[in-house]
């Protein structure tokens, strides 16, 4: 098992291997993302019952929660890729960290935006400076900082290094976001989906949500793969294998 993981890790470092293997995954990921999105949204928007208190406005959960989860997962992935780059000097890791940053920032923005739209009719305000909302806004600024640092240096490599360090420092924000609703009094409600307990949501509302979360992960994987392949082609453009691909 360990040997296999080690082998996979070394292979992931090879741009050519990554490019070839992910080429086969793209159609599958694309088809599954579209199917999952259609299924999740139809079930969530048309078939799930309205909430006893919020009525139909709760349905924004099917966008808000997946976006917020991906925004945080993407950040962790970006920080880990940054650490791999700093320790092992693996170029692929730096490119992955580079392509994740704008994707994660976009999901973060979607989560903040849909949250504000939901907050107005439910809470009575677009925004409140409670711990959950503020830490999520900090996540967006961390993403902006990482994107800026990646481009700020004269050489691409030192930009990646600085951005990786910032990403690692900002990692502390992730548990803060997660536990903010438990540690402090907030306006934002505590988590509905818990790893250890039964979710406090009716099953017919929960199934579309789980489909949407899973689908958004697939879509996120698709975005990373597509953008990483572009990075590979650009950086390896002088290599013979890339020239061969481009000629055909």
């Amino acid at each position: 098992m360990w040997q296999w993981l080690k082998q996979l890790y070394h292979r992931l470092g090879s741009p050519k291997w990554f490019y070839e293997i992910t080429g086969k995954w793209i159609p599958w990921l694309a088809v599954l993302s579209v199917l999952g999105c259609v299924a999740g949204l139809v079930l969530g928007l048309a078939y799930a019952p309205a909430d006893y208190l919020q009525g139909n406005s709760f349905r924004i959960i099917y966008i808000h929660v997946p976006a917020a989860i991906i925004a945080q997962s993407a950040y962790v992935m970006m920080a880990v890729a940054g650490a791999v780059y700093l320790v092992w000097k693996m170029k692929m890791a730096a490119w992955v960290a580079k392509v994740i940053a704008p994707i994660g920032a976009s999901f973060c923005l979607i989560a903040l935006f849909t949250g504000a739209i939901w907050g107005k009719p439910t809470w009575g305000t677009w925004w409140v400076w409670d711990a959950r909302l503020t830490s999520m806004l900090m996540l967006l600024f961390l993403y902006f900082g990482v994107i800026a640092l990646q481009q700020a240096m004269d050489s691409e490599e030192s930009g990646f290094k600085a951005a990786a360090i910032l990403a690692l420092v900002g990692l502390v924000n992730i548990p803060i976001i997660k536990y903010s609703v438990e540690w402090w009094n907030t306006l934002h409600q505590p988590a509905t989906l818990k790893l250890t307990e039964k979710p406090s949501m009716a099953t017919e509302m929960l199934i579309p949500l789980l489909i949407m979360i899973f689908t958004t992960y697939l879509f996120f994987a698709l975005l990373i793969i597509l953008r990483t392949r572009n990075e590979i082609l650009w950086h390896e453009r002088k290599r013979s294998w890339v020239k061969e691909i481009l000629e055909h």
Binding site: D51, Y52, L53, I61, W123, G124, Q189, S200, A202, M205
Partner: peptide, 17 residues
């Protein structure tokens, strides 16, 4: 001067409620 509603983490259809 301002009152906001706090929502809890429970979601259910009206019949269940």
């Amino acid at each position: 001067s301002e009152v906001l509603a706090k929502h809890d983490e429970n979601y259910m259809p009206p019949e269940v409620q």
